[in-house]
């Protein structure tokens, strides 16, 4: 479903993403790991069509993101990093707007809204203004937006950020369950989530892929390391050295 080849992004002289390639098929959940500033969000922004890559190609379900962005974006659901929302709307009207832009109207729209309110436990706040939501609820509202059209591809930038332990658990379960039928990429700083939800994980450091494989394979990547935590530190320490 997601095919990314030799993706590169430069901001002026700075290379944020350097020659990243991967594919994610339906039924796979790919975890994006890496220290702050590694280029996870930048990669996701290119895959979702927000940033234009300096070079490289992106295909979503066979459709080229650079040549036919509107068509390619149709099958993607995206949760950006800081869970942006229109602050002057209520939860339900915000979700309604997102549904409409995706061509879901009328009765199908109310059904879609009800479905995601259920999945994200948002019924209690459905008519509350987004402005007055707590951080976790804001995050869940934006997450709800990303699945409103039941997309085949889901790109989630730190989906469990700011959630309470119960909600973290629910979201992981949800990602794992949706991963059976969708192609999902999500980024995280919580390494337990890799075991909890990913079928594969990729560690990125300073824009480059330094490891890619199943959680089990990653553990064996560095001799002598037992946990993902150790592997992660071993592979991405370069940042701390200077």
């Amino acid at each position: 479903m997601i095919q990314v080849q030799n993706l590169r992004k430069e901001f002026g002289a700075k290379v944020a993403v350097d020659n990243v390639s991967f594919t994610v098929e339906k039924g796979e959940v790919l975890g994006f790991l890496g220290p702050n500033g590694a280029g996870k969000s930048t990669s996701m922004r290119m895959v979702t069509g927000y940033f234009r890559p300096t070079s490289g190609s992106i295909r979503i379900g066979g459709i080229d993101m650079l040549e036919n962005p509107e068509e390619a974006k149709r099958s993607i659901g995206y949760l950006p990093e800081n869970a942006p929302l229109y602050s002057d709307m209520t939860v339900a009207s915000f979700l309604g707007f997102c549904a409409e832009v995706r061509g879901i109207t009328g009765a199908a729209k109310s059904r879609a809204i009800d479905r995601v309110l259920d999945l994200c436990f948002l019924h209690r706040v459905r008519n509350q203004s987004v402005d007055t939501l707590s951080k976790g609820y804001r995050h869940r509202t934006c997450f709800a937006q990303s699945i409103i059209h039941d997309p085949e591809v889901l790109i989630l930038d730190e989906p469990t950020d700011g959630l309470d332990p119960n909600q973290k658990h629910e979201v992981r379960q949800l990602i794992k369950k949706m991963g059976e039928t969708k192609a999902i990429i999500f980024s995280t700083h919580i390494l337990e989530e890799v075991d909890a939800a990913c079928s594969r994980a990729m560690i990125i450091d300073r824009g480059k892929v330094v490891a890619d494989g199943t959680p089990q394979e990653l553990r064996q990547k560095v001799p002598g390391c037992q946990s993902l935590d150790e592997v992660f530190r071993n592979l991405t320490r370069s940042d701390l050295e200077k």
Binding site: R45, K73, P80, P84, C98
Partner: peptide, 8 residues
């Protein structure tokens, strides 16, 4: 960012 990643 949200708007520009929607199909429009």
């Amino acid at each position: 960012e949200l708007l520009m990643t929607m199909p429009l």
